[in-house]
């Protein structure tokens, strides 16, 4: 299956076609795009869902990374603030931001077809 506008350039057997297949399969693998007909039938296509917002996923994954102190300079002694070391507060901030973002993804980007009805 080829996206509109590019089908004219598709030459079977050329290196381009192989790259093209990789691209298509990657898109299909990630579940991006609207043109995938999926078995079994009964799936609502063209309905918004969290997977259609890759930037928000990148941000969510970044926040998961931020919850781990890989950025902390080796050998530095942590300073305590209200009983917890400084980097723990960054972790808790990242966790809270992650929870807010995930909640947004659940509530705002997951369209429920039955709600429209």
């Amino acid at each position: 299956m080829q996206p509109k506008g590019l089908s004219g350039n598709f030459i079977p057997g050329s290196p381009f076609s192989f790259a093209w297949i990789l691209l298509i399969s990657l898109r299909e693998y990630l579940g991006l795009g609207e043109h995938w007909q999926v078995e079994p039938s009964g799936i609502e296509k063209n309905v918004d869902e969290p997977r259609n917002h890759p930037l928000l996923w990148v941000l969510a994954i970044f926040l998961l990374f931020l919850s781990v102190p890989f950025y902390y300079p080796e050998g530095r002694t942590p300073t305590l603030y209200y009983g917890l070391p400084d980097w723990c507060w960054i972790t808790l901030f990242a966790d809270t931001a992650f929870a807010c973002l995930t909640s947004y993804l659940v509530l705002k980007t997951w369209a429920d077809p039955s709600e429209k009805e």
């Binding site: 869902e49 969510a60 998961l64 966790d95 929870a99």
Partner: peptide, 16 residues
């Protein structure tokens, strides 16, 4: 403390 992010991440996993 990473256990907090670990438990939260399960919900994101459902969205896959």
């Amino acid at each position: 403390i990473y256990s907090v992010a670990m438990m939260m991440s399960i919900i994101l996993g459902y969205l896959l």
